[in-house]
């Protein structure tokens, strides 16, 4: 069973620690005004205790500006804590909103979870 599978929202955030100091938050479902606060709560809690936070958006079926705002806030928070935020962004559904807002230039993105986890610190 996953850590957050009880959510009634159309989003699921599963947290996993593949290596010491590395947290991967895998998001599936729709990331909009309704569900973005859930992702925000999970990543803010995880950020308190990790050096690298990977947000994996591979299974996201919609990414709206509320979701983008969580990514931006999390990247600022990571910077304050001297942690790294890495975003796994693959496929049109996720790439298009990042590109159209220019956030693909601001956030550190990777094509796969393995690339993000294995990237040199």
């Amino acid at each position: 069973m996953t850590e957050n599978s009880s959510s009634a929202l159309p989003i699921d955030v599963v947290v996993d620690r593949p290596a010491p100091g590395v947290v991967v938050a895998s998001v599936s479902g729709e990331l909009d005004m309704l569900t973005a606060p859930r992702l925000h709560a999970v990543v803010t809690a995880e950020l308190a205790d990790c050096a690298v936070l990977v947000i994996d958006l591979s299974a996201v079926s919609f990414l709206g500006s509320a979701g983008l705002a969580v990514l931006v806030e999390t990247s600022h928070e990571a910077e304050r804590r001297q942690a790294q935020l890495r975003v796994v962004a693959t496929g049109r559904t996720v790439r298009r909103p990042l590109e159209i807002t220019g956030l693909d230039e601001v956030l550190t993105t990777f094509p796969t979870r393995d690339d993000a986890v294995g990237a040199p610190g």
Binding site: D32, M33, F62, L63, G64, S65, A66, T93, R96, I100
Partner: peptide
């Protein structure tokens, strides 16, 4: 995809 996102944005 753009229309979906724009409708979402305006309605949000």
């Amino acid at each position: 995809s753009d229309l979906k996102m724009a409708v979402d944005e305006a309605c949000s």
